[in-house]
């Protein structure tokens, strides 16, 4: 739970996120938290409230808004993921998402560099973080930040190379135990170009279709954002979602439905890029807290 000074800093943080996007000529949107359909993702367990899903991300609605003509949109909203509890996880958390029509993942990486510089400047102008250290203590935010492909990162830090990790179904474990702890320790780092199997909504890289134009941002070994060039081909998207629906059915015995109107709207979109950033986590890292529970107004420990 935050004290009075912490609440003030958190409010400033959110105001400055909005300020940054207003300055970039983004439109703020708001979409329902409870939805009758969801994008099928086997790794995410959804809460169900009175027969509808609590959103795990606002992406479905935001991509439809984008497809219907918006150029640049952003949203700060509550999202819900069941069973995700830990030092870096809350089951209910604040997510920041932004989308750009006619753009790709490289532009989003640049956005990240500018957004964090803006926030660090605003927080520093208000004073040190509660620990007495400056915001993002020990991290150099001056861009451009290093970019490391997933294959390069595994070659450098993992005991098994990427292809073997995938074949032996231990990609996640090696990523968490060997790769992530080495990323972003002194300067924010982008991990990018994920194997296509690990990016169900991202576009294939034209020059190398084995990988997706997807990236994650890391600071101090903590994953902060996931962005990608959107897959806008409704046919390929339907095939990938079909696979995911099948997988969820086999693994969890749940039958999810195809988000048909999402696919229909996707067809109107030429190209686009979008990103989700964990706002509570970014605030935690910026203010040098040790756990996400310390960085929010109320945590599950406070009830």
């Amino acid at each position: 739970m935050l004290d009075q000074a912490g609440l003030h800093r958190r409010a400033l943080f959110f105001r400055q996120i909005r300020e940054f996007f207003f300055q970039g000529d983004f439109l703020e949107v708001d979409t329902p938290q409870r939805q009758p359909v969801a994008i099928p993702e086997s790794a995410i367990e959804l809460f169900v409230a009175d027969g509808q899903y609590l959103q795990s991300s606002p992406e479905l609605c935001m991509k439809r808004i984008l497809a219907r003509g918006s150029e640049r949109i952003f949203q700060l909203c509550r999202c819900f993921r069941k069973g995700e509890v830990g030092r870096l996880h809350l089951e209910e958390f604040q997510l920041l998402e932004w989308y750009r029509r006619g753009s790709d993942y490289r532009q989003l990486m640049v956005d990240c560099e500018h957004l964090l510089a803006h926030l660090a400047g605003a927080l520093a102008a208000d004073g040190p973080s509660p620990s007495g250290l400056p915001p993002f203590a020990g991290i150099t935010l001056q861009g451009p930040w290093p970019r490391l492909t997933v294959a390069e990162a595994f070659a450098a830090f993992s005991p098994l190379p990427l292809q073997q990790a995938l074949a032996e179904d231990c990609f996640d474990q090696l990523l968490v135990e060997h790769v992530e702890p080495r990323l972003g320790m002194t300067v924010p780092t982008f991990l990018y170009e994920y194997p296509i199997a690990l990016a169900s909504l991202a576009r294939k890289k034209p020059a190398d279709p084995a990988v997706a134009e997807r990236f994650e941002l890391y600071i101090r070994g903590i994953e902060l954002a996931n962005g990608f060039s959107e897959l806008t081909d409704p046919v390929e998207q339907r095939q990938r979602l079909d696979k995911e629906i099948e997988r969820i059915h086999t693994e969890h015995g749940r039958r999810m439905v195809m988000p048909e109107r999402f696919l229909a709207d996707l067809g109107r979109l030429e190209s686009a890029a979008g990103i989700a950033l964990g706002a509570d986590r970014l605030f935690m890292v910026a203010e040098n807290y040790r756990s996400i529970n310390e960085a929010v107004s109320f945590s599950p420990d406070d009830f």
Partner: peptide, 12 residues
């Protein structure tokens, strides 16, 4: 104990 879940990955 530490809960981990890489983006788009499984809970560990």
């Amino acid at each position: 104990f530490e809960f981990s879940k890489p983006g788009k990955g499984q809970a560990l």
